[in-house]
């Protein structure tokens, strides 16, 4: 199990809470909330160790594409980067 945190300051805050996905094989749970301060914070707990660079690159690209401010929690059970990006986008759609 590994914990990864990615942060970026600034951005447009999300307005609502959103919850998508599940901690199931190849899947992940995303909790997205309006942030306490104007920054994006993504905290990942993943069952699979050794993929920190891939996680960082995936999350940084997400924040590049969507410059938001939000408190995001990810609970992952071996999802691919494609699935991670898709769930984040689904959560964002509900939270904006």
């Amino acid at each position: 199990m590994q914990r990864i945190v990615v942060e970026r300051s600034g951005g447009v805050p999300v307005t609502k809470r959103a919850h998508v996905g599940a901690v199931a094989s190849g899947n992940l749970e995303v909790l997205c909330e309006p942030p306490a301060e104007a920054r994006a914070t993504i905290v990942v707990s993943t069952s699979v160790d050794g993929f920190e660079p891939v996680w960082r690159a995936t999350l940084e690209r997400f924040l590049e594409r969507y410059p938001i401010a939000a408190a995001i929690e990810i609970n992952d059970f071996g999802a691919t980067p494609a699935m991670v990006s898709l769930r984040l986008e689904q959560a964002l759609e509900l939270a904006r």
């Binding site: 199990m1 809470r17 919850h19 599940a22 901690v23 749970e29 909790l31 909330e33 707990s45 993943t46 069952s47 929690e73 609970n75 992952d76 059970f77």
Partner: peptide, 21 residues
């Protein structure tokens, strides 16, 4: 107690299992 209440299992992490919220 929806997921944002974060009432998840305290026993799973120590067994290497990621908890659902």
């Amino acid at each position: 107690l929806d997921p944002f209440a974060r009432c998840s299992s305290p026993y799973l992490a120590e067994q290497g299992v990621v908890a659902q919220r």
